[in-house]
Design a protein around this nucleic acid. Sequence first.
DNA 1: AACACCCAAGAGAACGTTTTCTATCGCCTA
DNA 2: TAGGCGATAGAAAACGTTCTCTTGGGTGTT
Lengths: 357, 357
Amino acid sequence: MSDRRNERATVKDVAARAGVSPATVSRVLTGDYPVTATTRGRVQRAIRELDYVANAQARALKGAGTRLVAFVMEDVTGPSFAYVAKGVEHQATAHGRLCLICTTHGDPARELAVVEAMREQRADAVILVGGGFLNDEYRARMIQFAHALDKAGSRLVLCGRPSLGDDVPTTVVEYDNEGGAYAVTSHLLSQGHRRVAAVGLTRLDHTTSRDRLRGFTRAHEEYGVPVDETLLRAAAFTEADGHAATRALLAERADVTAIFAATDMVAAGAYQALREAGRRVPEDVSVVGYDDIPLAANLYPPLTTVRVPTEELGRTAVRLALNPAEKQHVVLGTHVVVRDSVAPVVVRSSAGNRLLR
Amino acid sequence: MSDRRNERATVKDVAARAGVSPATVSRVLTGDYPVTATTRGRVQRAIRELDYVANAQARALKGAGTRLVAFVMEDVTGPSFAYVAKGVEHQATAHGRLCLICTTHGDPARELAVVEAMREQRADAVILVGGGFLNDEYRARMIQFAHALDKAGSRLVLCGRPSLGDDVPTTVVEYDNEGGAYAVTSHLLSQGHRRVAAVGLTRLDHTTSRDRLRGFTRAHEEYGVPVDETLLRAAAFTEADGHAATRALLAERADVTAIFAATDMVAAGAYQALREAGRRVPEDVSVVGYDDIPLAANLYPPLTTVRVPTEELGRTAVRLALNPAEKQHVVLGTHVVVRDSVAPVVVRSSAGNRLLR
DNA sequence: AACACCCAAGAGAACGTTTTCTATCGCCTA
DNA sequence: TAGGCGATAGAAAACGTTCTCTTGGGTGTT
């Protein structure tokens, strides 16, 4: 192993070696000031010889230097976060920013720590990604964060969740959560389904869950189909929960013909439960998901789901936060991706299978 | 929208308000020096009243302040990167470091830019994650990066790829790539398979591909089964390529009984091609993958694959890089995860199906 | 040939901390 | 009671840049 404790050359050293002043070295470095070709050459040679590398901290202190964009979420391994991260990272580097990544695990103490750290770092944007909670305490905390960051010159960006109110200094980039749920539920209803279960949409304290349920309900209203409360099953947004909830559902209500899974992961669990119960998708039960994560296309049968423009969400978040002139609240569209997990409903009679409607 | 251009309070402001010197404020902040309770109280009140937040850049300039760990890969959306990232992020925050994320897209220019940026930032560790290329030019570049970072006081960490040589100042955290491939291939051979295709292992210029092929070959040698070159099919590590390569394979060699996919994503593509060809998994063709990404368990049938300890890879990378006293080269273990995609080979005869061996 | 002008380079302050060095006060001990 | 010492606080330097201000010298104009 080599030394690691290495005296790094400074502008002063370079200047001494090149026989010029530190100011000239700085000017060669930034290139925003005329310097004679010969002087520039001498300086550049000295830089090369000393393997000089600028100190970003010192630069930042003077107001120049690379700025930061922070990407904050509960857990890095959420299936769609990688795509938001990709959008954030691309846009951030396009703007010459470095991209920090922080996780909170939903722990308020860590959230606070992250926000404080970002205030100290003077991050340009702090992008909170994923749905938010709906209780007052959480909301108050977020509003406080927004103001705290604003005062420190940073911008809080809500990415994938609704606004906290017009008077809160935030940038909001959400997607049409309710609309997607409406569309995909309508898709099911249009295929004749009348007993549609919703798995994982009972968490009314969470924006994602709430908005998807709203779309689910609105579609039912529009079709004049009453929502059967007993078909609303609780489940966290995980495969395991989707599996368990669907199994329980099938045991109690063998008559469901379609399942709206709150997320594609939940849908994956539902697939599993259906398989175990010997019910085919989509012949016996249709299934739809939400998010359109890569997994969706790889399930068998490929899952009909709602596409969320994750990467664009990330890109937009950075772009808006860095361009205060732009409108600071946008809603990106969602759309149904039709694959093979939905079929028209059939009703089994003693005379055999017959298409309904 | 609010102002965003905000005069931030400095230690000097806090000191003035509290009626003390800047030095005292600093001491209250860091807490490493005795300060009277009453003075401390006054300072803390001033801090609160002014909503003072320290300037991380200025701190860093003085040698104190938060340090950085950088996480560098070609593309954020690689399916296992999120887990490595999780490990890196956890360990980094455990050590009080912030975590930068950078992508290169395999572009040498961007690689260089990232390394330069990290040198300027004086990142403690620069973690290169994913397999590496085997051509001389790439290798030389990496060696140069290692030395450049070393000279700037940063540590280059190779995460998931072999060492560049003992004289190169790097930390290496790899996993037993060859051993996993050997084990899973042996698993197939032990089930009687004798015509095993390898999809995606022809890239001999890539460490991941090369090492997995080595394990594949070694298992064949051990079983006395010659490797049939025509069963080695080229494919990038993507589902699309896995799909195309498998389709071509099946068209030419209908007699394969098992497929070793270079990665789980490739296996997903293989599943698709097999389904299209009307071949069942595992009854007609057994399939194994590599990586054990979450998708693997959700494929149907669930995929037998090789578990790579991704999260631990990330954790270890940070831990070693930050503790120079530890051994700077570790190889983490891999193991086969048996699911339902492998069955004993059967040979179809005119008399019907009969178990071979 | 004299003057104004512009271009290149240097001197030095400034950024916001931390930290060393110094000073003051009160208290303990001889 | 004097001298020394520990505890607390302040003054000022330092970290490595950038940037403003200043200066010197060469060139063009009349």
